[in-house]
Design a binder for these strands. Structure first.
Lengths: 252, 252
DNA sequence: TTCGTATAAAATATCACAAATAACATATCA
DNA sequence: TGATATGTTATTTGTGATATTTTATACGAA
C-alpha cells in the first residue's frame, strides 16, 4: 500500500450507518435512531463497507496490488468474506483481476480517466438537476450546514477534505431521489477514489478544495435553476479531472 | 421459476464471447481470432454469464426466488462459484437479499419502475448521442444488418425477439465508446430483464416489437443528428415502460 | 554466461462442512 | 379456537482444507 505512513486504513465503526440519511432509499424510520429493520450485518458487508470507504477517500493509489490473505488478516476474518467483498469491487470497476492471480487497483490510464470523467459528468449532473427539482428548503439548509462545517474545520487533512466533499456530494445526490442512480454514482466514486489519492499524495499534497462551486450549486438550487446548478457541478468535477489530465500528459 | 414450461434456461456455450465485438473495450486483436490474451475462464465467470443472459432475456420474473443449491445443481458446480456470481447480481441490483435468507428477484414496484426508466433513459440516451457522434458508416451498416436479420426471421419467439433487440441496443452502445457507461447499462438491463418477462409472458404474450424506432435511430445517425437519435431511443424505451406502468396501475 | 528444466513458494479458486438463522410444522395451553 | 412454545428443516454465511495456477528460485547443461 502507498499510505503506510500517511493515513490509517479507515476503521469505520461497525454501527456507523455511513452517510446516514443521505441515501435516497433511506428507511422511513431514518429519523428515529434504532427503528430501522432489525437485520444482522454479515462480515461480507462489513468488509465491503470498509473497503468502500478506503477507496472513496483515496487510500489506494492507481496500480496498487491487493491480496486476499493480507486483507483477511487485517480484518481478522477468513478469506471468504474478504473475497466476496473484493469480487464486488471488481464488478464495480474499482479493482481488476491482474495477470498472475493478483488483484489490482486499475493503473492510471488516460483513456480511462476520460471515460470516467464523461460518465461522472453525465450522470452526476443529471442527478443534480433532479435534486434541484425535488429539493425542499430544509434539504438545502442541510447542504449549507455540511459546507459550513467543512469550512469551519481547520487545519484540514486530506481525509477531512475528502470526507466533507464526499458528504456534500452524496447528500446532494440523495436529494435527487433515485436509488438506482445513487448506486451507480457510488460505483463511479469507487473508481475515482484512487485518482484522489494521486492528487492529494503525489501531484499536490497542499491542494485544498475551493467550496465556491458547492456554494454555487446551493444558490442555484435555491433559485430553482437546475441549469446553473448543473454548470457549477460540471465545473467542480472538471477541476480535479483537469489536474489529472495534465498530470497524465506531463513528460516523466 | 416461472418459466419451467415456456423456455429453456439459457445455455450459452462456454466458448461463446457473447455479443462479440459489441463491447467498447473489445480487445485490439479482436479482428484476428485466437490472438487475444490466453486466459482461463473460471467457473464463477461462466456461471455469472449464464445468469446474466437469463436475466436479460427475461427468464426470471419479478418476485421469483432463487436458491444457491438449486443453481449449483443446475450448473453442476459446488455452491461457491454460484454464490459469487449471485453476490455480483445482488450488487448490480438484479437480485435482492430477501428476509429469511432467500434470494429474490425484486418484486414489481411502481417506484422502482419509474426509477429504472429514468436511469435508462438518462444514461442510454447519453450513450446513443455519443454513438452518433462517433459512428463510422460501417458501424451503422452493422446495426442495419442486425435489424435486417431480426426482420427476416420468422416466426419470432419471445427469446428471438429479446435477443435481437438486445443485440441492437448493445451494439449501438458499444459504438458509444465508453466502457464505463456500457457496463452501467448492462447492470440496468439486468434489472430490467424481469420486467421483460412480465411483458412477454404475463401482460401480452403476443406482443412483438416494432423496429420503427430502431430504424429511426439508424437514419438519424446517418444524418449525424444525435438529437433525433436520442428522441427515437427515448420513444423506444418509453414504449415498454408505458406498458408496465399501465399494468402496475391496473386494478387487480 | 545463458538457457532450459525442475522445484518451491505464493496466491487465488473451488470444495466440503459446520454454524447461524429463519421459516415452517407440530404440540401444548388458556 | 387462537396464541404460544418447541422442534425440525432449509438455506445462507463463514471457516478451513485442497486443488490449481502462476511466479520465483535453484540447479545443471551447453
Amino acid at each position: 500500500m502507498s499510505q503506510e505512513n500517511a493515513i490509517e486504513f479507515p476503521e469505520a465503526s461497525f454501527g456507523d450507518a455511513g452517510m446516514g440519511s443521505a441515501r435516497p432509499d433511506a428507511e422511513p424510520g431514518g429519523g428515529m435512531p434504532g427503528l430501522g429493520p432489525a437485520r444482522p450485518v454479515n462480515l461480507r458487508e462489513l468488509v465491503y463497507d470498509q473497503l468502500k470507504d478506503a477507496f472513496m477517500v483515496g487510500y489506494f493509489a492507481p496500480g496498487d496490488y491487493l491480496n486476499l490473505r493480507e486483507l483477511a488478516d487485517r480484518f481478522e476474518t477468513s478469506i471468504t468474506p474478504v473475497r466476496e467483498a473484493v469480487r464486488r469491487l471488481v464488478a464495480e470497476g474499482a479493482l481488476i483481476d491482474a495477470p498472475g492471480r493478483a488483484l489490482r487497483v486499475p493503473p492510471l490510464r488516460r483513456s480511462r480517466l476520460i471515460d470516467l470523467r464523461q460518465a461522472r459528468i453525465g450522470i452526476e449532473s443529471m442527478v443534480t438537476e433532479m435534486a434541484v427539482q425535488r429539493a425542499r428548503p430544509q434539504d438545502l439548509d442541510k447542504l449549507e450546514a455540511i459546507l459550513d462545517e467543512a469550512v469551519s474545520k481547520s487545519p484540514k487533512s486530506p481525509i477531512d477534505e475528502l470526507t466533507s466533499n464526499r458528504k456534500f456530494h452524496f447528500t446532494l445526490y440523495g436529494i435527487g431521489g433515485s436509488p438506482t442512480l445513487f448506486r451507480i454514482i457510488e460505483s463511479l466514486w469507487l473508481q475515482y477514489g484512487p485518482f484522489l489519492n494521486l492528487i492529494h499524495y503525489t501531484i499536490d499534497p497542499n491542494i485544498r478544495g475551493s467550496h465556491k462551486d458547492h456554494r454555487r450549486i446551493i444558490a442555484a438550487a435555491r433559485d430553482g435553476d437546475s441549469g446553473a446548478a448543473r454548470q457549477a457541478l460540471v465545473a467542480d468535477i472538471s477541476r480535479s479531472f483537469d489536474i489529472l489530465d495534465a498530470y497524465t500528459q506531463k513528460p516523466r
